[in-house]
Amino acid sequence: MDPVTNWVLVILGEILVSIGVFFDVVAAIGMLRFPNFFVRLHAATIGAIGGAFVPLMGVALIAAGCDFLGKYRWFIAGAAAVTGVLVLMLAPVGSHLLAKAAHESRAAVVEPKVVDFLEEDKAKEGGEQ
C-alpha cells in the first residue's frame, strides 16, 4: 500500500485508541468511586465497550497501516478485530448474568432505588404460591 494510506490508517487508529484510553481511565475512576455494585455496573459498561472494544478496533487499524510489521500485520489486525467483536458480545451478557444473580441472591443492595419491578413480581409470585 502507498504511504499515505498507511498514515491515514495509523492516525485513525491512534484517535480510536486515544478515545479508548480516555474511557478506560474514566471507567476505572468510576469503578473505584461509585458506592455499590449496581451503580458500578454503569462504569463496567464504559470500561468494556469504550475501554476495550474501541481501542481494539483502533489497534486493528494501526496494525493494518504498520507496514514495518511485514505480511503478518494482517494477522494482528484480524485477531484484534475478532477480539473486539467478542468483547462487544460477551461483556454485556456477563454483566447481565452477574446483575441477575446479584439481585436474586441479594448479594448486593439495590441502592439508590426508585422502583424495582423484578422484586415486586417475585413478591407477587411468592404470595400466590
Binding site: 467478542l86 458480545m89 460477551l90 451478557v93 447481565h96 448474568l97 441477575k100
Partner: peptide
C-alpha cells in the same frame, strides 16, 4: 439453566 440471553450468547460463543 440460566436466562434466555445467556443461552443465546453461549450458543454463539461455544463454536468459537
Amino acid at each position: 439453566g440460566m436466562t434466555l440471553i445467556g443461552k443465546t450468547i453461549t450458543k454463539i460463543v461455544v463454536p468459537l
